[in-house]
Write a protein that binds this DNA or RNA. Structure first.
Lengths: 357, 357
DNA sequence: ACAGGAAATGTGTGCGCACACACCGAATGT
DNA sequence: ACATTCGGTGTGTGCGCACACATTTCCTGT
């Protein structure tokens, strides 16, 4: 039964050569005669050789170095979460001689990303974890890495044509559908449902539009008659304008629910409804940020969809490390479930260990 | 900065002893003088020693053996999920020379559990993962393991006085509260809300009552006037009787929502509502079982609370293995978040890799 | 025929650890 | 007095592998 051992030494014995020769064919280092090559290859198949990964990593005392490039957490609480995920993974991989350095760029400044990415490239990392905020600037950088043979993993938002080792995040279309559903639950008959994009960064537009597509799709697929969907696109810099628009929106007595696609926007809308009364309007947003949690507990926000940025970053490093250390191919896409947070299950999420592992 | 290496050898150097002595204190093998012990312990702290897992497993060719004792999956789909979680962890730990054997007992037969547990005990495992269905029979078995020095981890339901290494599951009180919330969402004014226990096994009663307590608590804390809570306790063997009771329950035009606390019961209620019309009654239950999924997609079931049996079992093995291999103490309780499944986010849960890590 | 050198092959060492064993001195027994 | 035990300690080996290096073989050119 249990094939006990199939070590390099066994291959060497079967092939009638030394372990050195076997080592050379295993690693394609050349310097092997046709004859020996053939015998060794046969022996490898014969004993069904599976390298002992434990011993391999111990034997090659290579130091792995990973660079993580994310927006500066001090500018946005969402990225603080990601940062925590990376910190956690640093602890996890330290025993395996991994060095993981985090580089921050300004979320609102393309040039900051450019200079940081150049800096990272010069450090010649063995792998890169990246949150691709700026599409136009990211793609060339990734192509550069590709030619340099540096593997990279994307998270949070995807660039499909970047042919990354893996992408970690959520399906934004489905996310929008769930947002629609949460706005709609328990409502019958006609009504207006709004989706609000309040962002500072045109770059994100494409992602937000994907959510909107899902939002609209939900209502198309779940026709209950007389339902109207509206969308609003606002610049987060103009606070006065935003409040004005929200006031206009809420004035419609038919308004039943709002999905806000950005966390920053959500707190603005929440504050508005807290001041002026909720009037039975369902409010749905994203992520377990401090302010959001407060508004959820207070009953202003009804649902949050958790994108789990902490775990995204954690798994990103995980996939990368596993690939570097064990040559384990990660899934091309690791899509997270769309977690729904309510006032009642909030604590169970806050208290859960998102994995020590 | 980067503390480069902290090997046993380094401890020995700092303590002014040999690696053999350090080894003895690390493994509590005795034969160490007070003086040396103190010096070594200080050195360990000083260099912040973290054992190299890689080298450890390579050096000690000890084979770890874990026994997992769960109900027979062929009798209940819920346990098929757990079984899958164990299978996944087998793959995870195989490289570290772990052998993980699963033993099944009959969910409906105490004696089957007794004989299986005795059989497992005779195999002298290094650790045990256990789903404690039969309280009265489980406790003595665990005490036996305790005296034999075999660590055990419980999952699914807890036996607090068993002093297990760890428990993995959900907070049932909060689970009931979430169940109440889901029944209530979008409803205003008066109405009746029911909680149904349909089980075959009096053993589970205490757990179900905990959920009921949470269910009632939610409605107490969220008074909206005229809300009435009723509970029903039924034997799953008497199908006719059940349908009769359900018919009676549904006849009440004030009935707004039902929480069914067992998966088996849920399919019975779902079938009833599918036949006789849903009449705007909110239906909430547990777990991503095949039938439940079907009814959720069909709109008969509105929400499912996911207990994530697969991940529970997976993490159970994980904690156990980590403890055996690295002496890493798991949390006494690892409570999972109360995941809410809707028709729209269902797919995202089904497609998600529960992470190999 | 023989040096020179490249091609082919074998040997040795260390990664960090666990563990068996050898050693040494002091206390004990007869 | 000597053998025996035993607490306390250090040394040596091997786990399976990668990789540097030593060694042999064989092919050139003169």
């Amino acid at each position: 039964m249990g094939q006990k051992k199939n070590r390099i030494k066994d291959i060497a014995f079967h092939a009638g050569v030394s372990v050195g020769t076997v080592d050379r064919v295993l690693h394609n280092r050349g310097r092997v005669s046709e004859e020996a090559l053939k015998k060794v290859q046969e022996a490898i198949i014969k004993v069904d050789y599976k390298p002992n990964l434990i011993a391999r990593t111990l034997g090659s005392r290579k130091r792995h170095y990973i660079a993580a490039i994310i927006p500066d957490p001090s500018l946005d609480e969402y990225w603080t979460q990601s940062s925590l995920g990376i910190k956690q993974s640093i602890a996890e991989w330290a025993p395996y001689d991994f060095q993981i350095d985090t580089y921050h760029f300004n979320l609102y400044d393309k040039n900051s990303f450019k200079s940081i990415s150049e800096e990272v490239y010069l450090t010649k990392p063995d792998g890169i974890l990246l949150a691709p905020i700026f599409y136009k600037e990211t793609l060339p950088f990734l192509m550069l890495c590709k030619t340099a043979g540096i593997p990279y993993v994307l998270f949070n938002s995807n660039i499909p044509e970047a042919s990354s080792l893996s992408f970690i995040g959520q399906n934004l279309l489905e996310s929008g559908k769930v947002g629609g559903e949460l706005c709609h639950i328990g409502h019958h008959g006609p009504g207006t449902f709004a989706i609000l994009h309040i962002n500072e960064n045109i770059q994100n537009a494409v992602h937000l539009l994907e959510k909107e597509k899902g939002f609209r799709k939900f209502f198309e697929e779940n026709q209950s008659g007389g339902v109207q969907v509206v969308s609003l696109d606002l610049e987060s810099s103009e606070a006065a304008k935003i409040n004005q628009e929200i006031e206009l929106l809420v004035a419609d007595p038919q308004l039943k629910g709002i999905l806000v696609t950005t966390s920053k926007g959500l707190s603005i809308v929440s504050a508005f409804l807290e001041r002026n009364g909720k009037k039975g309007i369902r409010l749905v947003g994203y992520d377990l940020l401090e302010e959001n949690i407060r508004y959820l507990k207070a009953g202003i926000i009804d649902f949050l969809i958790n994108q789990n940025p902490k775990r995204q970053a954690f798994l990103g490093i995980h996939h990368l490390s596993n690939y570097l250390l064990l040559k384990k191919e990660p899934p091309a896409m690791d899509l997270f479930p769309l977690e729904i947070i309510t006032p009642q299950n909030l604590d169970s999420y806050l208290n859960a260990r998102l994995h020590s592992y």
